[in-house]
C-alpha cells in the first residue's frame, strides 16, 4: 500500500536578497513498511523535503499525501527525529518519551504503557528514571527514537540522526535503530550524506541533484539483513561505486 506520495513538489524560499529555489520538482511514492534513504549533495534541499512531509512548511507547488490525505500542517502522522537527540534535560527518560503523547493529548494508560514497554524492550528499562545527561550518546539516540515511536506515527523522518555520534557509536546505533524500526514495522525516510549508511539501512535510495533539487535516480537495494551484515556483503561495494558516481557527478 502506498503510504506517502509526493506529487510535483516544489519549494522556493523567500529571503530579503531574493528567491532561493530549493526544490524544483520531486515525485516520489513510498510503500508501507519501506525504508527509504535520501542522499544528495550538501545544501541540495534534503531537510527541506522532510520539513514539508512533516507539515512544518507548505510546498510552493505540488502536493504531498499521507495515506491518501493531503498534508496541510503538523499532526500525529509523522515522527521527526533530528540530528541531535533534543531530549529535554530536565525531564527523565520516561517523561521525555511521553512528550508526544502529552502534546497530542493521548497520554492514556495504554499508550503510556506502550511507550514504557518499548523502553524496556530496547534496553532502557533501567534508565527510565534517569536524566538524559546520565546516558551515553547511543542510548540517548535510542531514547529519542522511542520518543518518536511512542505516539505511533505513520511515517518516521530521520534527518542525519547519527551524524553527531562518533564512528564506533554510530555503527552500533545504526544497527539498533534499524532493528527497532524493522521490529515495529515502521515506514522510514532517512536523510544522510553518508553513502554506506544509506546502503546499509535502506530498501531504496533516492539520489537528489544539487540545488534546485530534482530526483536524479532511485535505486532498489537488493541486499538484505542488518546494517553490519550488509556492509560485509560483496554487493555492498558495487552499490557504493554506483551511487558514489551518481552523487558526485
Amino acid at each position: 500500500m502506498e503510504i506517502l506520495k509526493m506529487d510535483g513538489v516544489q519549494l522556493t524560499y523567500q529571503t530579503p536578497d531574493g528567491e532561493t529555489e530549493a526544490i524544483r520538482n520531486i515525485n516520489l511514492s513510498i510503500e508501507d513498511g519501506e525504508f527509504v534513504a535520501i542522499i544528495g549533495p550538501s545544501g541540495c534541499g534534503k531537510t527541506t523535503v522532510l520539513s514539508m512531509i512533516a507539515g512544518l512548511m507548505k510546498p510552493s507547488g505540488g502536493e504531498i499525501f499521507i495515506e491518501g490525505k493531503k498534508v496541510e500542517g503538523t499532526g500525529n502522522d509523522v515522527g521527526y527525529m533530528l540530528q541531535r537527540d533534543q531530549l529535554f534535560e530536565w525531564r527523565t527518560i520516561e517523561s521525555n518519551v511521553m512528550l508526544g503523547l502529552e502534546v497530542q493529548k493521548t497520554a492514556t494508560p495504554e499508550n503510556k504503557e506502550y511507550a514504557v514497554k518499548m523502553l524496556e524492550k530496547y534496553g532502557l528499562g533501567d534508565f527510565k528514571k534517569h536524566l538524559p545527561k546520565q546516558l551515553s550518546g547511543g542510548m540517548r539516540q535510542r531514547a529519542a527514537l522511542i520518543r518518536t515511536l511512542a505516539f505511533k506515527p505513520k511515517i518516521l523522518l530521520l534527518d542525519e540522526p547519527f551524524s553527531a555520534l562518533d564512528f564506533q557509536t554510530r555503527i552500533a546505533v545504526c544497527d539498533d535503530v534499524h532493528s527497532i524500526i524493522r521490529a515495529e514495522k515502521k515506514t522510514a525516510v532517512l536523510v544522510t550524506h553518508d553513502i554506506s549508511e544509506a546502503i546499509s539501512l535502506a530498501d531504496r535510495i533516492v539520489v537528489l541533484s544539487s540545488r534546485p533539487a530534482i530526483v536524479k535516480n532511485v535505486y532498489t537495494i537488493d541486499i538484505d539483513g542488518k546494517p553490519l551484515e550488509r556492509r560485509e556483503n560483496p554487493k555492498f561495494s558495487s552499490w557504493f561505486d554506483v551511487i558514489w558516481k551518481d552523487v558526485s557527478r
Binding site: L56, T74, G75, Y80, L82, F88, E102, V103, L157
Partner: peptide, 25 residues
C-alpha cells in the same frame, strides 16, 4: 531551535511550546 522544531513536528501549539519547553528550559 531544534527543540522547538521537534515540538512543532509533534503538532504542539504555541501555548504548549511555552509551557512544556520555553518556561522549564
Amino acid at each position: 531551535d531544534g527543540k522547538i522544531l521537534l515540538m512543532r513536528s509533534m503538532g504542539a501549539s504555541k501555548f504548549q511550546i511555552l509551557i512544556k519547553l520555553i518556561l522549564p528550559n
